[in-house]
Amino acid sequence: PDNALLVSLGLPMGKTLQMQKGFWEWLRAYMDNGPWFDENGQRSESDVFVREMLSAHMKPTDFLPWRKQVIAEKKSASEGRNYLEWTDLVLYLGHLLFYPMNWLQEFTYNIAKRRSRNRWPQIVTERLQPDGPMTRLLDLERERGLDV
């Protein structure tokens, strides 16, 4: 629920058949099993595995502060010696150069995420609530005869 994922299920231009099938399978598994799964992809009541995987994810704007931290750690461990390598300089300058673009990307993503939530049908939004119904959308479609 903390992250949104944009999966383009539209026209297949630029996507292989395997990629399209993978998107649909991911979406089907998510709707059937819910957001929590274990390392084998099976439904789980615990979000431990998912939280562990998400903890490794860094936003693009986090790279610059992280690189500063790495350089500061090298400085404190060097005890007065030359601690910078050429890769430190190149990576720091690269992160600095791309920081405005990364910030703009995150800003645009956050706005798009906020706007898209208002367009979801009520049947979906009520299931996003922590105390919302647990009925699968597929079961509701079958009840209403929409799966034909």
Rank of each mutant, 00 (worst) to 15 (best):
P1A: 04
L5H: 06
L9V: 14
G10V: 05
M13P: 11
K15N: 13
K15C: 13
L17E: 15
L17C: 12
M19T: 12
K21Y: 07
K21M: 12
G22Q: 05
W26F: 15
A29N: 12
A29M: 14
M31L: 09
N33E: 10
G34C: 00
F37W: 14
N40L: 03
G41E: 09
G41Y: 03
Q42P: 02
R43Y: 11
S44H: 00
V48C: 08
M53C: 09
S55K: 02
H57P: 06
P60H: 00
D62C: 03
L64A: 01
K68G: 08
K68E: 13
Q69G: 08
A72D: 09
A72R: 01
K74Y: 03
K74T: 10
K75G: 04
K75D: 09
S76G: 06
R81F: 04
E85F: 04
W86A: 14
W86P: 12
T87V: 02
T87D: 06
T87K: 01
L89H: 06
V90I: 09
G94H: 00
H95M: 08
L96E: 01
L97N: 15
F98H: 15
F98Y: 14
P100C: 04
N102R: 02
N102T: 01
E106C: 07
F107W: 12
F107D: 15
T108I: 02
N110W: 05
N110P: 07
N110G: 11
N110Q: 04
K113Q: 07
K113W: 03
K113D: 11
R114H: 08
S116I: 00
N118I: 07
R119T: 09
W120L: 09
P121T: 05
I123G: 00
I123E: 05
T125M: 01
E126L: 00
E126Q: 03
R127L: 03
L128Q: 06
L128T: 08
Q129V: 08
D131G: 13
P133Q: 03
P133N: 10
T135R: 12
T135K: 07
R136F: 04
L140N: 10
E143V: 10
R144P: 00
R144Y: 02
D147W: 01
D147K: 01
